[in-house]
């Protein structure tokens, strides 16, 4: 975690738009979990879980990873 920075209201920052090419990455965790061909099978099993269950639970990490990356990369403060 980063050290908290002082919160100065800054009109330039508030006017900055949230457009960024990084945002397109968000499409991955929206589309991938909605394709049953990836996960609708029993094998391979992992810790006894059929693929249907462990892979869909693993998509949670995909979602968290992507949103965290996009958040980090598009953060206004700390931008060069």
């Amino acid at each position: 975690m980063d050290a908290p920075e002082p919160e100065a209201p800054d009109t330039a920052r508030s006017r900055a738009k949230d457009k960024s090419p990084w945002n397109w990455l968000l499409l991955i965790p929206i589309v991938v979990p909605l394709i049953p061909a990836f996960f609708n099978a029993d094998s391979p099993r992992l810790f006894g879980f059929p693929r249907f269950y462990w892979l869909q639970l693993a998509w949670i990490l995909l979602g968290v990873g992507t949103t965290t990356l996009v958040y980090r990369m598009t953060r206004k403060r700390g931008e060069h």
Binding site: L26, L27, P33, L34, T66, V70
Partner: peptide
Amino acid sequence: GAAGFFAVPYTIVIYPLVFLVLCR
């Protein structure tokens, strides 16, 4: 059975989907 597991993909796709929308 499996049909009830829709709640998992449902609550995965929601967050990237509304990531920008809710800020606006």
